[in-house]
Design a protein around this nucleic acid. Structure first.
Lengths: 188, 188
DNA sequence: GTCTATACGATGATAGAC
DNA sequence: GTCTATCATCGTATAGAC
């Protein structure tokens, strides 16, 4: 594996564990085992490296959600898999957790996050419509709003877990969301 | 107003707009008009100042939610006011937005955030039980999980809005959550 | 491609005059 | 209480040898 890959791997880890601002070139070098020369040979700077690392992260995460929302599964199973799936609560979402950082918000790093959010939302949207068609959810449901709500529960669950330093609150949020979906399904 | 108050006001603003790590003593000085001497006279350092500033922020925010959840209002009105209330979507929650920062998570600043989250959740919990008692929500509802879910929708809505740089997604998440609550209310 | 040496401003804090 | 030096260290990047 090349130094370039080592650098990207280190950046992926540090971005998840510490965020963008806290990820200094020095830390990247220590974790990757590469020297500063390699960093600035392969990338224009820290931001460019972060961009490359997060592009890979986004690709990995898309693959995961593609699996969660596989159309082989019944719509309601897709929803429960999405809502109840196990997550690293205290680390936060690998992309979403960066959205509050000033530099991230102001640069094209933010585009990677936004694109990923829209990608997941599209999956949710499709799944909700499939569930309607299958008679599992009421037709009057606004798929647009509903999909963003479910997505927000997950992103917010991470925030609750970290703010309280207690992973259980993410799980509570997940359970509550799934209970609401089930109630909608039964109640119509 | 004393320099101490000026410093705290500046910190409150910067913490909201930029976060903790991005709030440098230099920026604090410029915004507050105080010199470095004043900063280190009144506070032990940047972290101590942040702690004092965020304690004030938490007090202000508690007052706001106390109002939203006033027991003078019908339970369902409290819930709609909480869920649909107008927010500064692109700035994020003044406390929640800090939870992903490494230093915040590792220090007692995090306690302020967790305490606030629990405070809001307690209000939600009470309101949900009041709604049950009034016959507005089904008795089988898990108030614990439900309250954390609704709270997560708001916190997650901020993340969606910032990640996409589009305030509308917070509003979608809010609408979807309220629609679910209404459906639960009608459907039981 | 990779490394070490060097540069330079910013960060976070201290010392001491007023 | 407030201000202006001053300081050590870090963050970020460049230069140039190997």
């Amino acid at each position: 594996m090349s130094k370039r890959d080592d650098l990207i791997d280190a950046a992926k880890t540090l971005l998840w564990e510490q965020g963008f601002e806290a990820m200094s070139p020095k830390k990247i070098m220590r974790l990757s085992g590469a020297g500063q020369g390699s960093l600035y040979h392969h990338f224009e700077g820290k931001q460019d490296l972060a961009l490359a690392a997060l592009a890979e992260v986004a690709t990995e995460m898309r693959a995961v959600v593609d699996d969660v929302f596989s159309e082989d599964k019944a719509p309601m199973d897709r929803l429960s898999d999405y809502l109840l799936g196990s997550r690293q609560e205290l680390n936060g979402c690998r992309l979403g957790r960066l959205s509050n950082e000033k530099t991230v918000y102001e640069t094209n790093i933010c585009t990677i996050i936004g694109d990923y959010f829209n990608y997941v939302s599209q999956h949710l949207h499709t799944t909700i419509n499939d569930a309607k068609a299958a008679g599992d959810l009421p037709h009057h449901l606004d798929a647009d709003a509903f999909s963003r709500s479910l997505q927000a529960v997950i992103q917010g669950g991470y925030i609750l877990a970290r703010g309280t330093r207690d992973a259980a609150f993410m799980n509570k949020a997940q359970e509550g969301a799934w209970a609401m979906v089930e109630a909608l399904s039964r109640g119509h």
